[in-house]
Design a protein around this nucleic acid. Structure first.
Length: 134
DNA sequence: GCCAACGTTGGC
DNA sequence: GCCAACGTTGGC
């Protein structure tokens, strides 16, 4: 099992909308590295959702419910989408400022590669985030 | 709102 | 194939 973190601008698609929808197609990704990460997502992988821009917090936990398929919003077949299913809202959202203050989380792409929208997490990082947000 | 980082495009 | 120009993202 692998672990991931996906960003969403809450003005475009918020965690609340995701919870209301239950499941959603994570589409519209037009970045090669993010796409390659999506291609590696397997059924049941855990995906943390981060709100970029205004709130800048990790807010929810979801799971991969459909593996990569051609992105229906793309006009060629090089882009992919996955389906994610919302699992639960984190009891204590974790802010970017807090993440930056935790030595064991300095290697995640959120800190150094702020423009990457879909990134892998190690099990250790994932477990720590779950612990800190419970 | 500004600006740094960085991915993409296009001229050569 | 290089690199300057440009556009976009996202933190602050």
């Amino acid at each position: 099992m692998k672990y991931w973190l996906c960003k969403s601008d809450p003005e475009t698609y918020s965690w609340d909308e995701f919870v209301r929808d239950g499941s959603t197609m994570w589409d519209g990704v037009r970045n090669y590295e993010a796409r390659n990460n999506m291609r590696h997502m397997k059924l049941g992988d855990k995906v943390l959702i981060y709100h970029s821009q205004t709130t800048r917090t990790i807010v929810g936990l979801s799971e991969v419910s459909r593996e990569a398929l051609p992105d229906p919003t793309a006009d060629d077949d090089k882009w992919v989408a996955v389906e994610l299913t919302a699992k639960r809202t984190l009891a204590k959202p974790l802010s970017l400022a807090e993440i930056k203050s935790i030595p064991d989380l300095q290697n995640i792409a959120l800190v150094k590669r702020s423009r990457l929208s879909i990134m892998p997490l190690t099990k250790k990082e994932f477990d720590l985030i779950i612990e800190l947000t419970s």
